[in-house]
Design a protein around this nucleic acid. Sequence first.
DNA 1: GCGGGTCACTTGAACCGTCAAGAACTTTGT
DNA 2: ACAAAGTTCTTGACGGTTCAAGTGACCCGC
Lengths: 163, 163
Amino acid sequence: MIEPRWLNSDERRAWLAILSINTLLPSALDSQLHTAGKVSLFDYNVMAMLSEAEGHFLPMSQLAARTSSSLSRLSHVVSKLEKRGWLERRPHPHDARVTTAHLSDIGMATLVDLAPGHVEAVRTKFLDALSDREVNDLARIGEKIVARLDDDHWILRYTDGQP
Amino acid sequence: MIEPRWLNSDERRAWLAILSINTLLPSALDSQLHTAGKVSLFDYNVMAMLSEAEGHFLPMSQLAARTSSSLSRLSHVVSKLEKRGWLERRPHPHDARVTTAHLSDIGMATLVDLAPGHVEAVRTKFLDALSDREVNDLARIGEKIVARLDDDHWILRYTDGQP
DNA sequence: GCGGGTCACTTGAACCGTCAAGAACTTTGT
DNA sequence: ACAAAGTTCTTGACGGTTCAAGTGACCCGC
């Protein structure tokens, strides 16, 4: 009894590559961030997204969208980062249902401290493998896949503009 | 104080897309597999890799390589799948250090049962977003990234051949 | 043949993510 | 003006992943 070969050669290659990247890349970047400061890739991303927002704050649900995470996961992580003094929760003035997460000055300083090493790792583990042309192809193809997974993902609204 | 924009536009797009795919894709496929049978994407992959091996078995370390996982992670999962009767551990006849994982008939039957739905999900969530040309580009680019992350990854030894 | 080094794997604890449930508030329909 | 439904977020329990340490087994030089 044999497993039917349901994907053709290119499809299989693409799928297996994505699968490997998926486990190898986060683990490589996580370990860089974890030795540099005690942060995970996700922690870093949460803070990075806040640092790029006007006023360094965002409602939880928007932050969840920008980190592609569930509200539940985000809530746990925000609690953790809040305990370290890097973030602060505040109620929204006009809608009492929403909580906004604010990046503190200490949080910002930590991020600025971590950023160069992290970007360096993103380059050496990922971008340096590719030519400019390939980076562009990957961006285009990647965004098509994201669109398929989440029709109105925030990334897709900024393909030409300024976050 | 502003976060320096250390990545150019295409680099940033590619990076954010990979990051999103990374969290969105596994979760979409996990949930399909979890409702179809009670398996995770990783569980499925472990069994799929065994099903494609000669004799439906592999040493733990080879299986770890083919699923891009740590030995520790694999060991825990194999224990779980063993309890369900889908896998079996056996000692290697010539080297007492190595343990081989064998896919049982029941495990194979489960896999065959799950396969069509899973492949369908891989197509609808991922491959259907792309043209043949793009699938080929992605396979090529993806393998370059994998090579950067793990020099002698098993995938890279089979780009034209038969597993 | 035996001691040090390496290899293949396992285990338990700590940590992280997911899920289901629920609390607090706002909006909608009548 | 009120109830029903929807939104936003939090929580605790559960299961999965990682990390550090440990257990045998093989290999190499002497």
